[in-house]
Write a protein that binds this DNA or RNA. Structure first.
Lengths: 105, 105
DNA sequence: CCAATATTCAACCACATGGTTGAATATGTC
DNA sequence: GACATATTCAACCATGTGGTTGAATATTGG
């Protein structure tokens, strides 16, 4: 589904959210734990977490009053898969004969 | 630079722009050529192209009144590099002992 | 019960975005 | 010069975003 890619790319276009992903890669954390690292409000972090959650990049387990967050990297795999379709262009080798077919998404 | 990643991720968060990348992977094209495939205005496509250009995802060569566009995939490589840092999470193997250090960006 | 802690909800603000329409600017063609 | 083609610029609109502040909702602990 294309909309999923939309959300994943959009979620990762913000440096704070990429930093949150980075943080969660080091292990699960609560909202407050994540927020502690950033100079913005807890509320702002809460919003970022919702964006990441909607993109499927994290899972939230409510445990009492605490929300335990853990990284879900499947969307990252989809992004890697999408970009890998253009690997042959990465080296700036101008062989335009590398034209190939593909369906969009 | 983090802002470059910001722009790349943001540029690719739109399905039209991903389709434009896909189109340019099949070879260079003019603005009108690209626009022909989409149900939106030429003006809208022109804006999308500017976003892709600012993200470094395409290069524009003016040839008379025509602008020749060609894919520049280097930012895609950066995205692939960023996401690859999380490869170990892709298989949903819940070994939380896979914690590892990293600096953000 | 009461107070503290963890988190979200709601309203607001400034700004970006994706789209439109209409005009402007170049360049090519007759 | 006059007209057509290629592209951008400018203004506008609706919607989303990243941030704030302040209030609400749960849960835990004395």
């Amino acid at each position: 589904m294309a909309a999923a890619l939309d959300r994943s790319f959009a979620a990762l276009s913000d440096p704070t959210r990429r930093a949150i992903v980075s943080r969660l890669a080091r292990g699960p954390a609560r909202v407050t734990d994540v927020a502690a690292r950033f100079p913005i409000t807890l509320n702002a972090v809460s919003k970022h977490l919702k964006v990441l959650e909607r993109a499927g990049l994290l899972r939230r387990r409510r445990a009492g009053r605490e929300h335990h967050l853990e990284l879900r990297a499947a969307p990252l795999r989809e992004i890697a898969r999408w970009t890998s379709r253009y690997e042959r262009f990465w080296n700036e080798k101008l062989d335009a004969l590398g034209a190939f077919l593909e369906e969009e998404n």
